[in-house]
Design a protein around this nucleic acid. Structure first.
Length: 275
DNA sequence: CAAGTTACCTGACGGC
DNA sequence: TGCCGTCAGGTAACTT
């Protein structure tokens, strides 16, 4: 479900509900997630503690609770939502953080590809050395430039689409936004990444920033199940130009949009507008 | 080392 | 009505 815009939207939505609130209790369904959730440690370390900040790194939501930090990943279908503590528990609700004002942060994830891990904030470097160690720059970081991409791509033979979806190259671009940015930049998704020209890297870099900012401002994309922290969908999907549009006319030239599988993922493109 | 494939899981959907 | 195959926004451990 969540690429960078969706995670950013969730994160911004959580801030006013969580920051400065104290955790009263922690509960866990016990069903396995992508990584084990250390429920007993969480209960011992977080109960009675106050949330100090909520932020995002790559596709992780980081909830800092005094000396500890919850590292949340939404996987494909994960959701971090704010509920009244008396609201009925739903199937696939897995982790519950009861707060001091009667509301509850709930982690809901049907496919259980997501996870919540707990780190000691005083060992923040441990976080950098483990789960963040292989992450490339954030798209909005000044280190992320067209030149950076071109240099990193030199000599590589894979498809440009796989390259920009690689978290070691740049974080947060998944299948939807890879499709959309390549269309906006006029670049074929299967083009060998080492062969892009400087102008193409400039266009692609700009397309990535434009698309991600626009999607965030639309509250993300809701295809089937993405919801923000307040349970509302996004509407960037109304602005999709290429993703999921197989058989429809290209919005630029009118030719039929095609679909192919690249790296196991559905890829949509206009063979006239993307070279 | 780079690039391609598979597994992890549930649910929705189309075809029969 | 239900059974089956296919597909879905991500990631990492495999294999080639």
């Amino acid at each position: 479900m969540p690429e960078l815009p969706e995670v950013e939207v969730v994160c911004r939505g959580l801030i006013p509900h969580l920051v400065s609130r104290t955790i009263r209790s922690v509960q866990y369904s016990g069903l396995p997630l992508r990584h084990p959730f250390p429920v007993e440690t969480a209960q011992a370390e977080l109960t009675g503690k106050t949330v100090t900040s909520v932020s995002r790194r790559a596709r992780y939501v980081l909830i800092q609770v005094e000396s500890h930090i919850l590292v949340c990943h939404l996987g494909m279908t994960g959701n971090l939502g704010i509920f009244d503590r008396n609201a009925a528990k739903r199937k696939h609700d897995h982790i519950f953080f009861e707060l001091d004002n009667g509301i509850e942060l709930r982690f809901h994830d049907p496919r259980r590809f997501g996870s919540i891990q707990l780190f000691c904030h005083t060992a923040a470097e441990q976080l950098e050395k483990t789960i963040f160690s292989s992450l490339g720059p954030e798209p909005f970081d000044s280190a992320f430039t067209a030149g950076y991409l071109q240099k990193l791509a030199r000599g590589k033979k894979g498809a440009v689409k796989n390259f920009i979806m690689d978290n070691r190259v740049v974080t947060g671009i998944g299948n939807i936004y890879a499709n959309e940015t390549l269309f906006l930049a006029g670049i074929h998704p299967k083009k060998q990444v080492g062969t892009l020209t400087s102008p193409q890297w400039q266009r692609l870099h700009e397309a990535i920033l434009t698309t991600l900012h626009w999607a965030i401002s639309c509250g993300g994309s809701t295809i089937s199940d993405f919801l923000n922290a307040s349970g509302e969908g996004g509407y960037f999907q109304a602005n999709f130009k290429i993703y999921g549009k197989e058989g429809k006319p290209c919005p630029l030239c009118g030719k039929t949009i095609e679909k192919m599988v690249i790296g196991g993922r559905s890829s949509f493109y206009c063979k006239t507008c993307q070279k």
